[in-house]
Design a protein around this nucleic acid. Sequence first.
DNA 1: CGGCATTTTGACAATCGTCAATCAGTGTGG
DNA 2: CCACACTGATTGACGATTGTCAAAATGCCG
Lengths: 263, 263
Amino acid sequence: MSNPLIQKLEQRFFLSDLDRRALEQASTCVQQVPARQDLIAEGDESDGAYLVLEGFACRYTVLPDGSRSIVAYFVPGDICDLHGSVLTEVDHAIGTLSPCKIALIPGEIIRDLTSNYPIIDHALRWVDLVDAAILRKWLINMGRRSADKQIAHILCELLVRLQAVYLATDNSYDFPIRQIDLADAVGLSNVHVSRVFKTLRNDDLIGFEGRGLRIPNVERLKAFAEFNPSYLHLEPKQPGNYNRKRSGAGRRGRGIQGGHRDP
Amino acid sequence: MSNPLIQKLEQRFFLSDLDRRALEQASTCVQQVPARQDLIAEGDESDGAYLVLEGFACRYTVLPDGSRSIVAYFVPGDICDLHGSVLTEVDHAIGTLSPCKIALIPGEIIRDLTSNYPIIDHALRWVDLVDAAILRKWLINMGRRSADKQIAHILCELLVRLQAVYLATDNSYDFPIRQIDLADAVGLSNVHVSRVFKTLRNDDLIGFEGRGLRIPNVERLKAFAEFNPSYLHLEPKQPGNYNRKRSGAGRRGRGIQGGHRDP
DNA sequence: CGGCATTTTGACAATCGTCAATCAGTGTGG
DNA sequence: CCACACTGATTGACGATTGTCAAAATGCCG
């Protein structure tokens, strides 16, 4: 079984054999975790990270009124909580959504990787930036999009993210997420998620087969969701000696911010 | 006039004179920018960063239907777009909300700061983590909180962030944000923001005096908003040689994720 | 004073949540 | 093999929150 983190990073970076070996060795401490179990509870101190090898997990908070808010999904290849070395106090819980295989990476190993493997260091920073970009996209979807487009968008996002680790075909993937797990991620009720699913099925935008999600026409779903995968930054491969483009620094855009809401 | 970035970092880190001088020199290229002007337009390539010295700015996107989504506020001391060295393509615009004084920091200078000033490097990573924490908090507020609590929360957040750069008193600050700028940040309509403001005023939770916001009883507003400032990570000062706590790596929380929505 | 941007208000409609009942699938034990 | 329990999905009825539209009011600045 190949390591999904390596697969994901190799979508974008050229790793050396040394890099690959280091990453392999970093993820040797593996645990099988059942569905709906916490890896980190809110308030825990953590030094180290969890790498998802199989299954779906999430970062979430439970509010005082008992409702749950999921702020990130983790799929194979994703790393939860890379940041033990800067902020030690964790303000969110991390839990599994389906049965998972999780690799435990101690903080010491992470610091070794980022100190001694410059390409890995660079790639892990890229991972952080992509995570932040996903967060911003979720915020946009939640704030300014209808429920159906929002859900369609997240289904497209999962398609692309899973394709990067070879867990999705061109138009389908295993979907072990309950409707309430989706509801807590998009800020809707489980009932409304069910209703949205129904309309998406009726419009033949999605279809369920057992626990698998099938997308009859990916382009049509992407168009409906206004999904543009560029924010995931998964396409172009960069040479290992991470070259930086340097444009004239100090350039200022001159566009005017205005005309919002006008046709 | 003292540099607000230095003020903010000194809330949490001990900077040396060298660090301070380096940061001062990094922010010498200053521009006065009028309200509602873009610093970076969507799609621009950027290498370098903008440091807000005075005024309010934001990161935003305009959706195909013309609506605007604001995903971050920038107040004095905040840095927009630190990441020219990793992701060159920018997928959001950055624009001013009020007249601003902005320092332009070329990417070259940033790389010099992070390479040669370890405390600054550490502090800037901390800035990134706080930004991500704010993003998650906004997502939670938007997804699972009523409009009035959400708005109260963001007002509390701004209070604390502005206090860190000495731009807020114990219970008031200058508030140059239009209601529609708030609406686009919290995912509501400007009309509804107006209604929420009215109820908050009626309950004596907030008050406006000219363009200043006054909070008669900060603890009451914080309680109402369920605001806990810990996610901003502004309180404790850490020694310059950023010590890391090391707890037993490999510890696993044993909590069970369940009972959501049950009283 | 006049013009402009912003806020406020009211009326109405659409979206979405809540509650409760039902249905479907899955696994367990007798 | 079937009854049973359990979890999750679905449906309907109803209500609350919030959006939209349009008009009026307010405040600011020349």
